[in-house]
Simulated scan of single mutants.
Amino acid sequence: MHNVQPLPVPAQAPRRYAFDVLELLVIPAFVLDAQGRVSMWNRACEHLTGVLAHEVLGTRDAWRSFYQHARPTLADLVLQRRTGEVAALYDDHQRPGGGDANLSAQSWCDMPRSGRRRYLAADVSPILDGDGAVVAVVETLRDMTAEKQAQIALEQLATKDGLTGLANRRCFDDTLHAEWQRALRQGQPLSLLMVDVDNFKQYNDAYGHVGGDACLQRIAGAVASEMRTNDLVARYGGEEFAVILPNQSLKGAAIVAERIRCRVERLQLPNLGVGKQYVTVSIGAATALAAPDTDPAHLVATADAALYRAKHMGRNRISLTLEEVVAAR
């Protein structure tokens, strides 16, 4: 049996040999020289970006293959010693092994040529000469779009109500806390609506749980249709919904509440369980001015109390309570 000896790397051309290896990799990779020009763009990179090597070699336009608007690639940042900007440009980044030479980062890329937005993970390694100076930078890429989309889907499942598609209680609690802190910083009012379906037990008794679920879905759509971009509507629990209205006065909250009440009434969902009436909602509204020594739980309690009054007063109506909490002077 003969021993198989590895072919020697030509001593006079180690860099050319390395480039040939990169060219044959199934992993997308490109190389920038010391002047930031593309000196290698392998076939896998062509396949990923839709940009052929001859279109980009010798240019400083590697970024055009990934973004609609000018911005540096990760390799550019390393080459130009601008790694302090990585956090602002990428969703996530790290230095593998804790070293200073290599850098990894992830972000969404526009991919102008292919027209398909992709989530790419980039790994960058500088090539040094005998004196330690950077003569080139290698960037390899991994398409992690499927993994990212799966992560987003899981996150949405964790924050959305399975029946209505609205935000769930956990998302409501987190958002209310964040909006309370924002209102505190900016000195703006924060309003909250608590919306409850009237006589829902009788509706469930008359139509069954399947009918009740369909009713809640219709009402959820009606409530959500009245929201602004920054508002949040959540299923608070059972047949109760909560609406967070950032930077909204009590007067504005009352207008939104009345629009919601009317829209639900216009659905004309018959409730045979209560004398052939239509399904309606009662709404409690509260507005607060956040202060350092307060928390949003008081706003929830105030809106709940207003909702109870609306129920007590005959249902299918709104009840308002202004709760201004100001810092002690």
Rank of each mutant, 00 (worst) to 15 (best):
A150L: 13
A150H: 14
A150P: 13
Q151N: 12
Q151G: 09
I152K: 14
I152M: 13
I152G: 06
I152Y: 02
I152Q: 15
A153P: 01
A153Q: 07
A153V: 01
A153E: 01
L154E: 13
L154I: 12
L154Y: 10
L154Q: 10
E155Q: 10
Q156M: 15
L157S: 12
A158S: 04
T159W: 03
T159R: 15
K160E: 06
K160F: 03
K160V: 04
D161G: 11
D161S: 11
G162F: 13
G162K: 15
G162L: 15
G162I: 15
G162P: 14
L163W: 04
L163E: 03
L163N: 03
T164P: 09
T164L: 12
G165Q: 13
G165V: 10
L166G: 09
L166E: 11
A167Y: 05
N168G: 08
N168W: 07
N168T: 12
R169Q: 13
R169F: 09
R170H: 07
R170W: 00
R170K: 11
R170T: 04
C171I: 08
F172R: 11
F172S: 08
F172A: 14
D173R: 11
D174Q: 15
D174K: 15
T175K: 09
L176E: 00
H177Q: 10
H177M: 08
H177L: 09
H177P: 01
H177C: 06
H177F: 02
H177W: 01
A178T: 09
A178F: 05
W180K: 05
W180Y: 12
Q181K: 02
R182N: 00
R182Q: 02
A183V: 11
A183L: 10
L184G: 08
L184Q: 10
R185F: 03
R185A: 02
Q186D: 13
Q186S: 07
G187V: 03
G187Y: 00
G187F: 02
Q188F: 01
Q188K: 12
P189W: 00
L190Y: 03
L190V: 02
L190M: 04
L192A: 02
L192G: 03
L193N: 05
L193K: 03
L193D: 09
L193W: 06
L193E: 11
M194D: 04
M194K: 03
M194F: 00
V195G: 13
V195Q: 12
D196Q: 14
D196H: 10
D196L: 07
V197F: 01
V197P: 06
V197L: 07
V197R: 08
D198N: 09
D198H: 04
N199V: 05
N199I: 08
K201A: 05
Y203S: 06
Y203N: 12
N204F: 03
D205Y: 03
D205S: 02
D205Q: 07
D205I: 05
A206F: 07
Y207K: 14
Y207Q: 15
Y207T: 15
Y207N: 13
G208L: 09
H209L: 04
H209G: 04
H209N: 08
V210F: 05
V210E: 05
V210S: 02
V210I: 10
V210C: 04
V210A: 11
G211Y: 14
G212N: 10
D213W: 05
A214V: 10
A214K: 14
A214Y: 04
A214M: 12
A214D: 15
C215I: 00
C215V: 02
C215H: 08
Q217K: 13
R218Q: 06
I219P: 14
